[in-house]
Amino acid sequence: MPYSAASNRYESVSIARSGRSGLQLPRISLGLWNNFGDDRPLETQRAILLRAFDLGVFHFDLANNYGPPAGSAESNFGRIVHEDLRPYRDEIVISTKAGYDMWPGPYGEWGSRKTMRASLDQSLKRLQLDYVDVYYSHRPDPNTPIEETMAALASAVHQGKALYVGISNYYTVAETEAAVMALKAEGVPLSIHQPRYNLFDRDIETGLLAALEDLGVGIIAFSPLAQGLLTDRYLQGIPTGSRAAKGRWVTESDITESYLKRARALKEIATSRNQSLAQLAISWVLRHDAVTSALVGASSVHQLEDTLRALDAPPLSPADLEVIEAQMTADPE
């Protein structure tokens, strides 16, 4: 039967504005970095995506190289949009990125004007779309002037192929300010920044977070669960088939006694709040007003639903934050 979205999908969803832009996102967005390539059944992907939309998740984040193989996440998502979600296109925020290795030769990666333009055209074809809502530079290019990369993003807006532009993995304040100024010269604001941010990786707190708040640029945090380290998954060992077992993004060497001590302490805090460790980790990322959305993955409908329950908990109190901070700064030995 044709898909019909839940009529109550916006009744309990929490939405935030990205900086000072008109871009609004759900507090939890769904990323297709993993689990949406050709190594996963399309029907499993469809079930996750449609359930997410029914639950008020209307932002789906991709990149040209997501898979495996590279490009397959966009192709699979495009097929599901075409077959199921096309009637709701005006409700949905779809983002993609360019910058990592995609095809042979010097223009298959990084941030030249040629690369950024060709990649977006390829992405739109795979996605079966006329435009994306957000187009990102996936990483800074040390050999291309930032003005050229940002001009390519602005050109996508001027051509109607993107509505907003963003940057990801730009971790210095200087790079970010340069991107803002270069885009301003093109008449296009920087609407969103996508950095890695979680309890175990807090580098953006050393200056970038405050700078983005001052610049009026929203933040969507990727890896809020630290590739599964901020979940219950590894507290009793390394499950077969897990990322650590496969050595993908996380390895067995990451599951140290220091890590386990810290993760178990956080688990106790989560339990006291009737949350899972993952839900606590998301509540912590979203505690800061500058963070528009937390970008999560999902390998099943159950995992998606469990993650979204993070929004049901009350905000972290100053006392909660003090306890969490004490655990994170204590000597784990």
Score class of each variant (00 low, 15 high):
residue 33 W to V: 03
residue 113 R to E: 12
residue 107 Y to P: 00
residue 123 S to P: 07
residue 322 E to P: 02
residue 184 K to A: 12
residue 279 Q to Y: 12
residue 293 S to W: 06
residue 206 T to M: 11
residue 127 L to S: 01
residue 13 V to K: 03
residue 80 I to A: 02
residue 50 L to P: 01
residue 232 D to K: 06
residue 141 D to V: 11
residue 279 Q to P: 08
residue 99 G to Q: 11
residue 87 P to C: 07
residue 9 R to H: 15
residue 136 Y to K: 02
residue 333 E to N: 13
residue 25 L to W: 05
residue 33 W to K: 00
residue 205 E to Q: 09
residue 38 D to Y: 12
residue 200 F to C: 01
residue 151 A to V: 11
residue 154 A to G: 06
residue 102 M to N: 07
residue 101 D to Q: 13
residue 106 P to K: 12
residue 258 S to I: 13
residue 12 S to K: 15
residue 163 L to S: 08
residue 151 A to E: 13
residue 94 I to E: 02
residue 212 L to I: 03
residue 124 L to F: 05
residue 67 G to Q: 02
residue 31 G to P: 06
residue 243 R to S: 05
residue 283 S to M: 10
residue 135 Y to M: 03
residue 221 A to P: 05
residue 252 E to K: 15
residue 91 E to S: 09
residue 230 L to T: 03
residue 189 P to R: 14
residue 102 M to E: 08
residue 114 K to P: 05
residue 32 L to K: 02
residue 61 D to L: 09
residue 184 K to D: 11
residue 167 I to Y: 04
residue 34 N to F: 15
residue 327 Q to K: 14
residue 307 T to E: 05
residue 278 A to W: 13
residue 108 G to V: 10
residue 253 S to V: 15
residue 43 E to S: 13
residue 171 Y to E: 12
residue 53 F to Q: 01
residue 232 D to Q: 12
residue 294 A to T: 03
residue 220 I to Q: 14
residue 199 L to W: 06
residue 238 I to L: 07
residue 126 R to H: 05
residue 61 D to P: 05
residue 190 L to Q: 05
residue 269 I to N: 00
residue 237 G to E: 10
residue 289 D to K: 14
residue 251 T to D: 11
residue 228 G to W: 06
residue 291 V to P: 00
residue 65 N to C: 10
residue 189 P to G: 07
residue 234 Y to H: 03
